[in-house]
């Protein structure tokens, strides 16, 4: 209706392992397209300005905030959203670890958190506790206080538990 005066941009990319083609409005964010056009609502909007990480997705394996990406910038990329993380009924190890540590409360930050953790472990399979906290610092969580989240990823990464120690 109101799109008549807009030059739509045709894009195609890999979404959760499958090719997808669509026409997008050039000024929409990747987040708006993923949620509203494609209908994958697992990716959340908590701020729209890059400050909360709820919209984190992986683009070519790297964690980015979809609210700060223009929809046409998805073109040609390999994109993964939370919906593409578990394999059928089997949770991804990151998801399993978070489950086992009770690291999910309201769950609004959770999809973004999973994506960031996944992005971290793909780049660095043995991060230290500090590296984990740093890598997840772009994902705000108001419920959990992060401890169980970092515990979960730390255990998954197989590095020694450091929570007991006062870090310097």
């Amino acid at each position: 209706m109101q799109n008549s005066d807009i030059d739509l941009v045709n894009i195609q990319f890999q979404l959760n392992g499958k090719p997808i083609r669509l026409s997008v409005r050039p000024f929409d964010s990747a987040l708006a397209v993923i949620r509203d056009e494609i209908g994958l609502t697992g990716t959340k909007e908590g701020c729209g300005i890059g400050e909360c990480g709820a919209c984190t997705i992986l683009v070519d394996g790297k964690a980015i905030t979809a609210c700060l990406m223009l929809a046409p910038q998805l073109d040609g990329r390999e994109v993964q959203t939370i919906e593409g993380v578990a394999e059928g009924d089997t949770l991804h190890p990151v998801q399993q670890a978070l489950l086992a540590h009770g690291a999910v409360q309201c769950g609004f930050c959770t999809p973004g958190m999973v994506m960031s953790a996944k992005g971290l472990l793909e780049a660095n399979s043995h991060p230290t506790r500090e590296e984990i906290a740093d890598a997840l610092a772009g994902n705000l969580c108001r419920c959990t206080g992060y401890v169980q989240i970092v515990d979960a990823i730390e255990e998954l990464a197989g590095s020694p538990r450091a929570n007991e120690a006062v870090k310097r």
């Binding site: 990480g53 964690a63 700060l68 960031s116």
Partner: peptide, 9 residues
């Protein structure tokens, strides 16, 4: 700078 996501972009 910012966060992992911001640094990646």
């Amino acid at each position: 700078v910012g966060s992992t996501q911001i640094r990646n972009m």
